[in-house]
Structure formats: structure tokens, C-alpha cells
Design a binder for these strands. Structure first.
Lengths: 117, 117
DNA sequence: CCTATGTATTGACAAACGTGATTTCAATAG
DNA sequence: CTATTGAAATCACGTTTGTCAATACATAGG
């Protein structure tokens, strides 16, 4: 948060003198940045973004067998992307018999959404 | 957008019969997903997220010489991250004499922000 | 048991990524 | 001109990523 940087027009300095005082970056901001960046990274692939998009538009849970034909990708690749989203905490999954159903965990996107606004 | 997926409890099918009708995924959604994923990918690194965070908190432009000491990174590495952000269209830069000033392009985050909300 | 089916994991490989050391470029001061 | 300084580009490196083929795992039906 409150990193207090001053913006002032600069002129060349007498050489040896540092350009500006080093600013301490609060650790809390770093941790938050890491959390948010983890979410952003998981969303940083078009396939995964579309997966989340589809899952979000269905309030309920969607079967993997419905997700795979949406993309021109092999089933293992889709499964890999779903795993990434799971590891990032963006989606959850549930097995029902042979089928696996995925759903978005809405709270996982809240901090990111708040930061972005 | 409107991908019409039905969610229905599944039972084992007679083998050979597909699990569900393939759904056509609209190209417009794909292009939007690619645009948004590009932004997300650029934000998917803690350093870059903090850079954007700092720049956003300063409505004006911030000198690179003020950004480098915020991180325990070499100047070329910070410059590299700034380049990534520039390539994603998230930030712009301006040279004023020896110094380079960076600023956030707010509109670049709008589509992402809207999608996320 | 055995077979079939949906999903996940493993292995492999090229491409991209994050980083630092070094170098190059641009602009200012003398 | 030369020397100096801030920033970007280049090179090198180990790591991670996205993808598929092949395999393994889990569950259901016979």
C-alpha cells in the first residue's frame, strides 16, 4: 500500500549522489501481490480463461466431458489446465460416479477483482 | 458468451454414444479470452503486479530510477518487466532527458475488470 | 472376475519465462 | 570532443509452461 513516491522533475545530479531515496516496500503489499499474481497467472492462458468463463456462466457444476469438446485440445491437456485452476484455488471439483464436475469458487476472484477496480 | 451448456445428472451410457453434444464455442469469445488472458499473463508475476500497483497509485508518471530500488532486482530485470507490461499495453512510457517515466494506461484494464466483476 | 469408459498422471519436448552480467544506446555536463 | 549517467538490449542460464501420446487410475456393467 501507501508507498510514498514523490514525482518531481529531475535534473542531472552531481554524480555519486543517488537519484532518489530508496523506498521501503511494505511486506503486506508483497504478500498481497503474490496472492493476486497467482490468480492472474492462472488466468493468463486463453484456454483457462475460457474454462473459467464457461464455469462462471453456469452457476452449477459442469462435467469435464462437456468442457473437452469446447476446445481443440486433447482431454489430458484440458485436464492439465483444470488442474492449474484447481491449484490456484479458482475452481473446485467433485466426482460423481465416472464423471467429474467442476465449478468456480467465486471468493477466489474477489481480492483480484477488488484490486483491479 | 452465450454457450448453452446443459447441466444434467449423468448415467452411464450404452457405450459408443458420445457423452454430450459438442458445443460450438463462439469465436468472439475466443478473441476476447485472448485479449484478457494477455493482460492477465502480464499481471501474473508479483513484480509486475507491484509495478502496476505503484504506478496506479500515482496518477502521474513515475521515474524508472524510483522503481528500481523498490525491488531486490537488477535494473535490467526491472526494465525487462516494464517492457512486458508495455507490450501488453498496460503501461506507457515517456523519456524526459536521461530519465524514463512510466504510467498506467487505465483503459487497458477495463475489459478485464468488467469480465471479472 | 473382465471389459469398457471418464478422468488424471506421466514422460517427452519445444517454447517461453525470470534473472543477472555485460554491453549498447541516448542524453547531459564539462 | 570526452566522460558520465539512466535505461534498454543482448547473451546466457536454469526453470517453467503448454501440448500430446501413452499410461494409469477409478468406477460402472456384465
Amino acid at each position: 500500500m501507501a508507498v510514498d513516491l514523490e514525482f518531481a522533475p529531475k535534473t542531472k545530479r552531481p554524480a555519486g549522489e543517488p537519484c532518489c531515496e530508496p523506498v521501503v516496500y511494505p511486506d503486506v503489499a508483497r504478500e498481497q501481490a503474490e496472492r493476486i499474481a497467482t490468480i492472474a497467472k492462472a488466468l493468463g492462458d486463453p484456454i483457462r480463461l475460457q474454462l473459467v468463463d464457461v464455469l462462471r456462466k453456469h452457476a452449477g457444476k459442469v462435467c469435464v466431458c462437456e468442457l473437452v469438446p469446447l476446445f481443440d485440445l486433447s482431454q489430458p491437456t484440458v485436464s492439465h489446465h483444470l488442474k492449474k485452476l484447481r491449484e490456484a484455488g479458482i475452481v473446485g471439483s467433485e466426482r460423481r460416479g465416472l464423471w467429474a464436475y467442476y465449478y468456480v469458487i467465486p471468493e477466489s476472484l474477489e481480492e483480484f477483482s477488488a484490486w483491479l477496480s
